[in-house]
Design a protein around this nucleic acid. Sequence first.
DNA 1: CCCTCTATTTATAAGAG
DNA 2: TCTCTTATAAATAGAGG
Lengths: 235, 235
Amino acid sequence: MTRSKVKISYITKDSARKATFRKRKKGLLKKASELSTLCGIDASVIIYSPYNTQPDVWPSPTEAQRVLSKFKKMPKMDQSVEMMSQESLLKQRIELANKQLKRQCRDNREKEITQVMFQCLGGQGLENLNMMDLNDLGWLLEQNMKDIDRRIYMLTKASHSQGSVAAASASATMATPEAMLKSGEKVHVESPEREVSPETEQRQQLIKDLMHSPENMRLDSVFSFGDNNPNAFFP
Amino acid sequence: MTRSKVKISYITKDSARKATFRKRKKGLLKKASELSTLCGIDASVIIYSPYNTQPDVWPSPTEAQRVLSKFKKMPKMDQSVEMMSQESLLKQRIELANKQLKRQCRDNREKEITQVMFQCLGGQGLENLNMMDLNDLGWLLEQNMKDIDRRIYMLTKASHSQGSVAAASASATMATPEAMLKSGEKVHVESPEREVSPETEQRQQLIKDLMHSPENMRLDSVFSFGDNNPNAFFP
DNA sequence: CCCTCTATTTATAAGAG
DNA sequence: TCTCTTATAAATAGAGG
């Protein structure tokens, strides 16, 4: 999780596993204690490990026993209670996973369209793109535009002696495919269920027109985007 | 822990407590699951809360039962086992607390001496300082010097067209009392049990000499510090 | 209340000694 | 191997919808 992102899977190397175990056990117990304190609740953590014959028990074996007897009593009424609990827990997990999936799809779509954008910047025409791609691409460009405007604003605000043109080119410099794909900067593409703004409709008409243009139509001529924005990527 | 550092104590406000509970519970279970996966160990977490009639049980009630029965069997041999465990846990905590105290003392000492240093820079003489303070002060100055040298080195390495003098003054600019006290930069003062280097002994002699100098002796003349370092704070 | 969005703090993996 | 340090990832408080 630091120095390098690490995959959560069994650590093969003995020493490393033990080191990680000690660190994370400490972290876990701390978290448990904080949760218990902050929210005034009963909690207990038991950890078995090959490094100790005794399990690690928090906050104390006595307390753990107390909590445990409480636990033992309750689901005893019927195993069905337990099943319910299991089921709802599973449902919860599925829900969470679905949410993560959705977000991942969104991110993927953003990356996809970003790649398309850079292909276009490389000279590829728009002919092979379908309506949805064009639409999303337009949205992405809009977002980038807004981002650049924001940065220009900040830069001009920060130093009046610097021209905004210089600022603009500085921003544009960052927009390499790698930077766009790797940087953590959010561009907020809400791909699937995005609302259709007036500008979007206008753009869709524009796109339709373009798709009937001669084949050598190039992106350059599209970039000023129908409005008179003087901050086009490539003047 | 974020936006503002928060004290670990019971959250009075109901909604905030619940929100925190949900967030942290999620985090805790994630940590537990990661630990279990990474190190291939049995672990179980049970959390009682007023927000659910059922306790939160991880990884599943069945699994928890399994782990628990394992736990129940073991300390039953004698309560003394439990007592031991309690005692050793307590010892561990005390040890940790002592360590933290030591570090805190060290940090405090560093801040203290840093303040003294800036008082001196403000024109206060060295007359009121005892041997230990002078010694630590010398050490601090040495560290700062090294730090500045390091930065000059890095800066001159980074851009050959820039003069090292400019770089030096840039470093010196940072050395306001606030910056020194608040910045996270480590200066590594090992106050109490520091080893005595030859330079230190030399300085101690120097200090002794200074303490017998006329009262209007000022810090300025001490700053080049016995060696011929051309990078004195105030030339 | 519950989500989402960041600024910030905390946890921790990898190095260094 | 253990500890301490440091750079980076992860958790999360507080603010907004």
